[in-house]
Amino acid sequence: MAEVYVKNELSYKAKKTIFHILVYAFLILITISVLIPFYWMLLTSVKTQVMIEQVPPLLFLKPADWEINNYKLLFEVVQSGPRRGQPLFPFFTYMKNTILVSVITTVGTTITTILAAYAFARLRFKGSNLVFVILIATMMIPGEIFILTNFLTVYRLGWYDVFNQTYWDAVLAMTIPFMTSVFYMFYLRQTFKQIPNELYFAAKVDGTTDFQYLWKIMVPVAMPTIVTIIILNSMGAWNAYIWPNMIATRDEYRLVSNGLRGAFTDSSTGRTDFGQQMASAVLVTVPLLILFFVFRKQIMRGVSRSGIKG
């Protein structure tokens, strides 16, 4: 009996070790697959055109052989074309715009989201279910179809003017239409709902108004969720592409994603400079990654919660 037990334990341990080895191998394989595109982006960005076109491809490159020129060229001022007088990839201009647009959109979204989530979570009113369902349904519509009407709306609001659009017109046009998010509202409502009703009634007894209750109690309690919303939302502007392209009458008003496409394909030869293209991709990716590593915990916690609570 004892023998069998020992034998079993041994094989159990061996099995467990083998299992762990397999699991780690699997995870390392996935790690490599996840990292390869980033690695390739970085590697291509420091290759010369000759190295890029080499067959078979160079898989490694000593730092001594890195071609920093691709990055230098991005910052060189071009003499003509739509970016005349600006760098080939006006990274800092775009970055400034992106951050500004991102901050304004996020502030707006956070406010509208908190107010609406509070109404759905705490206040009873006629038609609340209907409105809620309608709002959720809008998440299924391809946003493409809004563009032309929104373009005309923005024009009527005076934010689009081919000749006299100011910087702030462009900023308004890029922010106001995006100051709502059904998804975050839904997410925050779930958090609000978990706050015990007792708190609410206690506050009512104390003569606290709904509004005071929201700001003094609900918001502080739901702060982790709100921080998540703020972080996730502020990353959205990094991916905006079609709308800023359409609404900004000057290249200086555009956002980082707009800088990625087109600029590195010579329109007369149709050839893409992959080195410069990847260098710009690195420039756009790095700030996001930095932001991610700084707020890693909050972001990951927030995203996982948004997924579960849905």
């Binding site: 071009v78 003499q79 003509s80 074309g81």
Partner: peptide, 9 residues
């Protein structure tokens, strides 16, 4: 128009 570097000059 659509002119690039040299043509714009």
């Amino acid at each position: 128009h659509i002119y690039g570097l040299t043509k714009s000059a």
